[in-house]
Write a protein that binds this DNA or RNA. Structure first.
Lengths: 144, 144
DNA sequence: TATTGTTATACTCTATAACTATA
DNA sequence: TATAGTTATAGAGTATAACAATA
């Protein structure tokens, strides 16, 4: 079966594409702002948030952040210098270092998440049914 | 009238927030990829795209890109070195320099836009009616 | 030999402050 | 004096390549 091509010139499609671009832009701006309120860069905020779930090897962090492992060294260095993250040995493999949030790091991450929830609050304007529709539409988009 | 608070703990809301985050992440990845295919950084791609509409003063570009004017100098420098952009004097004010795309720049921008349209193609999975719904929902979100 | 994390290097983006040429 | 663009500087993220310790 041949894959069907979307009509790129369809004005409605173009408008929706434009709107998605706007949502993406606003999402990013507010993410950066929220991070900056805690004196974090975007990359630092992402890494810190990842670690609130569980300690992770440096290598694993690089995969999650989609960057080279050498970069993670610096980001963790800076977070560690502020006492938000610490490096622990991995009992199972002495080559591995596990990055883990400290208590202070967890506090900052909590504040960050609250700010982000607020940033994402445009959803407030939608009813329960509308949220259901939006979920379905987003799922279909992502499945494409 | 008191502003109503969205229930942040509502599982559906959290799920939709998560989905939006996923869409945002994918959008950005594909934007960077598309730019990289033309040996452009994200900032360079944005600036180049802006200029395809009309030549703009450096100051104006900084506003559009939401960065300091001093940064625009470097980005335009690099694009100019590749012959994709040129600086023109403004006949009305000799302090102003207008950045404008060259023919070659326009060609690259066109290729970039095509790649982006392709990247945004997840919309292909939606019917006309679904695109209408999505537009309405996005508009309501952005209005919040 | 292969893998983990690090270091060294170089480039880009970023903001701040100081400078120049115009207005 | 105010504004437009630039330069100088410093910090952060990024990729590449080479390295030490461990597997």
């Amino acid at each position: 079966m041949a894959t069907q091509r979307t009509p790129r010139t369809d004005p409605l499609t173009l408008e929706v594409v434009e709107l998605i671009g706007t949502v993406v832009a606003r999402y990013h701006e507010e993410y950066e702002e929220a991070a900056a309120e805690h004196a974090l860069t975007g990359a630092q905020a992402k890494l810190l948030s990842l670690l609130t779930l569980e300690p992770l090897p440096m290598r694993r962090l690089a995969q999650k952040l989609r960057c080279e492992p050498s970069n993670v060294t610096g980001i963790v260095d800076r977070l560690e210098a502020r006492g938000l993250v610490e490096r622990r040995p991995d009992p199972e493999d002495r080559r591995v270092k596990l990055a883990a949030v400290t208590e202070e790091g967890r506090r900052v991450a909590r504040g960050l998440r609250d700010a982000l929830d607020f940033a994402r609050e445009p959803l407030a304007g939608l009813s329960h049914e509308e949220r259901l529709s939006l979920r379905a539409l987003l799922l279909r988009m992502l499945a494409a």
